[in-house]
Structure formats: C-alpha cells, structure tokens
Amino acid sequence: MKILVTGFDPFGPDKINPAIEAVKRLPDTIKGATIVKVEIPTIFNKCAEVVHDAIAREKPDYVLNIGQAGGRFGLTPERVAINLDDGRIADNAGYQPLNHTIHEDGANAYFTQLPIKAMAHAIREAGLPSTVSNTAGTYVCNHIMYQTQYMRDKEFPQIKAGFMHIPFLPDQVTNRPNTPSLSLADDVRGITAALEAIVEFDGKADLDTVEGTIA
C-alpha cells in the first residue's frame, strides 16, 4: 500500500506552517504502508497541479492532504469538500477568489472515502484531541480537498482521498492570546495515528460511532 501525504507551505503572516513541517517528519513506512510526502503551495489551482502530478507519478492507494486551521483545538479529519472558493485573504500568489465555482462540471460537494471516524478515534487513543469536522472552509484547504476528489471522480477512480486540519504550533500563538496550539511532535504523532487507522481500515467500513461535535 502507498499513501500520498501532502502539506501546505506557510501563508499569510506566518513564517511556518505546521502542515508541511509535520508531514516532513512522518515515518517513511507506517504499518507496512509506504508514505510519500509532498509539499504543496498555498495557491489556488497550483496546489492541485502539484497533487495531480504526484498522483500520476506515485500511483498511491490513498491521498491525505494536511492543512493548518488556526483556532481549532484538535486534529480534525474532514467529511466533505464543497465546490466553492471564497478566500478570506489572498493566496501566496496574490489571488483572492470570491464566490468562485471550482469546477462547473463537478459535484456540488464530494465526501471523503477515508475512515474519518476511525481516524479521529485513533488520534484520541494516542492521547490527542480529535473530532470529525463537517466543514473544510472555503480557502485553499477546501480547494485541494475538492480538487483531489474531482481528480478521483474524473481521472483516478482507484484512489481514496481526504483531508485533515491541524492546529497552530505554539510559536504561532505567542501574539494570538487564548488561541489553542499543538506541538509539532504531537502533530506528527496524531497524523501517524490517523494513517495507521487508514491502513487498518483498508477494505473495511468506518466506525459506526459518534466522533464529531454538535456544531
């Protein structure tokens, strides 16, 4: 089994992005699965080109995109991506789409194929906060989740794909009072636990338990 794991580069005012820093530190193999790590730019459309090339080159069984969600307490596997770009800020190329449809011939939304409940459960079993999230936002994180699902729908039906958000690092919240953070070591541990769940649940149904929140 091969799992492609991507992480975004820094964006906005931050000089670091926990997504790529954690991805770079993942083990090369997890429970026998080969882990392929790729950095992607925080740029609408360009990030999808990089992921497309990596899928075509590596031919993974699974794709897990990782992104930063400042303000969240835990690691949150995403359930769904929507066909909308609506940037609260410009991306790293200066582009800020507003109410923009990603693909006219795409579904309004795509649901993940990953065992997100098992992933959240495994992360909590590792001693870290995690819940299933039902919104990936409308910025580049949702964009790449949607784009990867669109690739699966149109070109790579053999893959299973999804997205997970992780919190700020402690260094990122020194000037952001009352904002939660998680250490880089814990990010790596949590993502590893999620990947272990993906391997363990390969070919199986996801957990039939409540793993989200009331919101």
Rank of each mutant, 00 (worst) to 15 (best):
A90G: 12
D208E: 15
E125R: 13
N134I: 11
V38A: 09
V5Q: 05
A93V: 01
V173A: 06
R79H: 14
A48W: 11
Q147K: 13
I89A: 10
A205Y: 08
G74H: 07
I35C: 05
A193N: 06
E39R: 13
E58V: 13
Q172R: 03
Q96M: 14
A122W: 08
T101P: 00
R57N: 15
T112I: 01
L195K: 11
I55E: 06
P177Y: 15
I198T: 03
D53Y: 05
D14R: 15
V140G: 03
T131K: 10
L26W: 09
N83G: 01
P27N: 11
R88G: 12
Q149Y: 14
T29Q: 15
V38W: 12
Q149K: 02
L207A: 08
P60G: 02
C141E: 02
D86Q: 09
V80W: 12
E104R: 10
G137S: 09
E196L: 01
D171Y: 07
A69I: 03
A93L: 12
I123R: 03
Q149E: 15
G94N: 02
T179W: 09
Y62L: 06
L84R: 14
H143R: 04
I66G: 05
D85N: 15
A81Y: 04
D53F: 00
I214T: 14
I30E: 01
A19F: 07
A69K: 12
F44L: 08
M164S: 12
T101D: 02
I35F: 11
V188C: 03
E196N: 12
G74Y: 09
V132T: 06
I123K: 08
N142V: 04
F111Y: 15
G12V: 00
D105F: 10
G70P: 07
D105T: 11
K117N: 10
K15F: 11
A109F: 15
Q158P: 06
A81V: 00
L4Q: 04
A161R: 04
Q149N: 14
L4S: 06
T192G: 06
R189N: 13
A120I: 09
P167C: 01
L114K: 08
G32L: 04
K204E: 14
N17T: 04
D153F: 14
I35K: 05
A122P: 02
C47Y: 06
N99G: 13
L114M: 13
H103D: 14
T174G: 05
T42M: 11
F111M: 13
N99M: 11
Q172D: 06
N134K: 00
H103N: 14
V23K: 03
V23E: 06
T213K: 11
K37L: 08
F8K: 11
G106Y: 08
A54H: 08
I66K: 02
